[in-house]
Amino acid sequence: MSISSSSEIRKDPEMGSPVSAAPTASKRLLSIDALRGFDMLLIAGGGTFLVLLKGKTGIGAVDWIANQLTHPAWNGFTFYDFIFPLFLFIAGVSLTFSLNKGKSLGLSNGTLYRKTFVRMIVLILLGMLYKNAPVPFFEPAQIRLGSVLGRIGLATFVATWFYLNMGFYKRLASGMVILLLYYAALYLIPVPGYGAGDLSFEGNLVGWFDRTFLPGRLHQVTYDELGILTQFPALCLTLFGTLAGEVIGKAWLDKRKGSYLAIGGIAGIVLGLLWGLHFPINKHLWSSSFILLTTGMAFLFLLAFYWVIDVWKIRKWAFFFQVIGLNSLTIYFAYSFIDFGFTSRKLFYGLYAPLPEEWHAVFQAFGAFLLVWVFLYILYRLKLFVKV
């Protein structure tokens, strides 16, 4: 992990943010940073503030939004389920630009593999720190191995191999094959005591596999949604993200990029919903239908951000999100190790103290979110960006 300070916002080839695929220009796609920032916004306090508004305003739309920012108990889908898949997809989009830049600088495939492998190891270790801090070093059975950062690192490393060795359609076919095999495994491999095809909370193959082969603490006790088997469908999001990145990076596709991204989005959503009629949409299991649905949504979100920001050049509104997106790792960790809520109360309690007590948590959360953004803005102004 490193902290860069420069007068120009750029990243090296091994980093996860995009630069131009053309070797003669180093032009950053602001839409990728803005989309990443939008994604992180809901993690960086924006989601908490909105959830706390539920039942307090008397406005049905506000309550509906609040409900969309919580996960379903099992089957089903809310917008909050889309947050992590979108990040994995963006990682794949960014990866294409990073690898293309590396190749244009003369880096060999072996060097690129080595860089992404080291990055994977660092992210796995950081993920374990994040999920377990304070780490119970003397109770290894209480250490959770699965993590968001670890999944990003592993998916990016595997996607690197696919991107450097396979063309567009072979990567697309490989992703679909992985999803089909995962689907077949969950329906055809019997689980002791439950049989084959049991997708219940207790009887699914994912949970049995984690309980049998994954050491340490399981997040849901009977399974871990960031465990072993779910790695396979999850990495397809990053793999499909490389397809979108390749579309954006092809100069000769300028007049058709929007059409390609729209087709990818609509196809993913339709296929996901149809598959979901038999293989339920389920984030906990990272079901194949869930992967296709969120992939389709990610294509459309990327299309919207890319077209408005980088094609139409309407950018001022995106600065708010860009500040967050440029330091996504920073805010992810900061929210775990810095008590912004405590500081918010210290600074702003006098302003909202006269309000009914049920509103105090809402304004404290909103104040914490403002502090987070100001913190990231200061880092932006200082040109300090944490990289892995």
Rank of each mutant, 00 (worst) to 15 (best):
M1C: 14
I3E: 13
R10N: 14
R10W: 02
M15G: 08
P23N: 11
L30D: 08
I32G: 02
D33R: 05
L35I: 12
T48V: 07
L50K: 03
G58I: 01
G60H: 14
A66E: 08
H71C: 02
W74G: 02
P85C: 10
L86R: 03
A91G: 09
G92M: 06
S94P: 01
L95W: 09
S98M: 13
K101N: 13
G102V: 07
S104M: 13
S108G: 14
T111G: 07
L112D: 05
R114F: 14
F117N: 10
I121L: 07
I121A: 03
L123K: 12
I124F: 05
G127Q: 06
L129H: 08
K131G: 02
V135A: 09
F137V: 07
E139L: 04
E139F: 07
A141N: 14
G146P: 08
G146K: 03
L149G: 05
G150A: 09
L154W: 08
A155K: 03
N165S: 10
G167Y: 10
F168G: 04
Y182P: 01
A184R: 12
A185F: 03
L186S: 00
G195F: 05
G195E: 00
F201P: 00
G207Q: 00
G207E: 01
P215F: 04
L218Y: 08
L218G: 04
G227R: 09
C236R: 08
L243N: 03
G245N: 00
E246N: 06
V247N: 00
A251L: 00
K255C: 06
L261N: 07
G265L: 03
G265F: 09
L274Y: 10
L277P: 09
L277G: 15
F279N: 08
G296V: 05
F299V: 05
L300M: 10
L302D: 05
F305V: 05
I309V: 06
D310C: 14
I314P: 10
I324F: 15
I324H: 15
G325F: 15
T330C: 15
Y332Q: 15
G341Y: 13
S344P: 14
H360K: 09
H360P: 12
Y380P: 03
L382Q: 15
L384C: 13
